[in-house]
Amino acid sequence: MSRAEAAAPPAPVRALWTFGLLRSELAVTFRRWRTLALLAVLTGVPVLIGIAVKIETSDGSGIGGGGGEGAAGPAFIAQITNNGLFLVFTSLAATLPFFLPMSVGVIAGDAIAGEANAGTLRYLLVAPAGRTRLLLTKYATTMAFCLVATLAVAVSALVTGAILFPLGDLVTISGTWISFGDGLWRAFLIALVVAASLLGIAALGLFVSTLTGSGIAAMATTVGLLITVQILDQIPQLHAIQPYFFSHQWLSFADLMREPVYWTDLVKNLEIQVLYAAVFGSAAWARFTAKDIMA
C-alpha cells in the first residue's frame, strides 16, 4: 500500500436509511392523481353515511337494524343521531373491510411493479438508492398512506358528525358513560389501530409487486387476494384457519369502546399484522434483491 493510499480517508459507508429518499417518495406518491382520487373517495364515505342517517332519521325514527353488542358497525350506527362522534367509528367500520385495504393494495401493488412498468426502476437502482433501502422506503411510504387514509376517513367523519349531529358525552359498548374528550381520544386510538391493521395487506401487496413488471397486474392481484381472504373468512368450515387471516380481527378496534378496554383481540390483531409484515416483507426482500432488472 502506497503512502497516498494509506493517507486517503476511508470510503463512506452507504446508509441503509436516509430521509431524503423517503421525502422524495412521499412527495411523488401523494401528488399522484390516483392517490388523491383514492383519498377523495375515502373521505366521501363518511359524508354519504352521515347524510343517509340524517335523512332516515329526519322524521324522528331510529336507525333500523340496531344490532347487538358484538356487531361493531350496527351498534355504532344506531348511536350516530345521539352523538356525531359515533360517525367516526361507523365510518371506520364501514371502510375497513374493503375500501381502506383496497386503497392500500393499490398503492402497495404499484410500488415496485409501477416503477418497472414505467422504466424508472433501473434508474432508481443506478442512483445511490440500493435495493434494500428502496424496498424499505416503498414500504414506509405505503405505511404512511395507511395512516393518512385512515385519518382522512376519521377527520371527515368527525367534521360531518359535528355538522349534522350533536356532540357531547357518549356511552360505550359496555353501557358506561365517558366524556367527549375521552371519546375523542379513543377515536384517535381507534384510527391508529385501524391503520396498523393494514400493515399485513401492505406487505402482501409489496411482495406481489416484486413478482411482476406490470403495476395493473400487481394491483389487481393484491385486491383479488384481499377479496378471496374476505370470502374465506366468512366460511364456517374454515374456522380452524381463519384466526390466521390478516383480516380476521380487523373489527376488534371496537373493543377500545368498552369500559374497561378488552385487549385480547386487539393484541391478536396487531400480532397477526406484524407476522404478515415480517413474512411477506422478507419474501419481498428476497425476491427483489435477487430480481434481474431488465428495464
Rank of each mutant, 00 (worst) to 15 (best):
V88R: 02
Y262V: 12
G68I: 06
I173S: 01
L238K: 08
F76S: 14
P97Y: 03
A217R: 12
G66T: 01
Q249M: 06
A286E: 01
G20Y: 07
I163C: 02
A157L: 08
I241Y: 06
H248M: 05
M219G: 00
E271R: 11
F207W: 15
I241H: 06
F145D: 01
I178K: 11
G181K: 10
A278P: 07
A277D: 03
L270D: 04
W263S: 03
T120V: 10
A218V: 03
L87S: 00
T150F: 10
W263Y: 13
R122D: 02
P128A: 07
Q237H: 10
L270P: 07
L42T: 06
F180H: 12
D169P: 13
I201Q: 10
G44L: 12
G67C: 08
L266M: 11
R186Y: 05
P97G: 07
G84I: 03
S91W: 07
F30S: 08
G67W: 09
S24W: 10
N82M: 04
A202R: 06
P101M: 05
N83E: 10
A196V: 11
I216S: 13
G161C: 05
G114D: 10
I80E: 00
V194I: 10
T35V: 09
S252W: 04
A113S: 15
G281I: 05
A11F: 04
A118I: 00
S61G: 15
M257Y: 14
A37T: 14
V267T: 12
F180A: 15
L16N: 03
S61R: 15
P166C: 11
D255I: 00
G62Y: 08
N269F: 00
L225M: 14
T18M: 01
W185Q: 12
L124R: 02
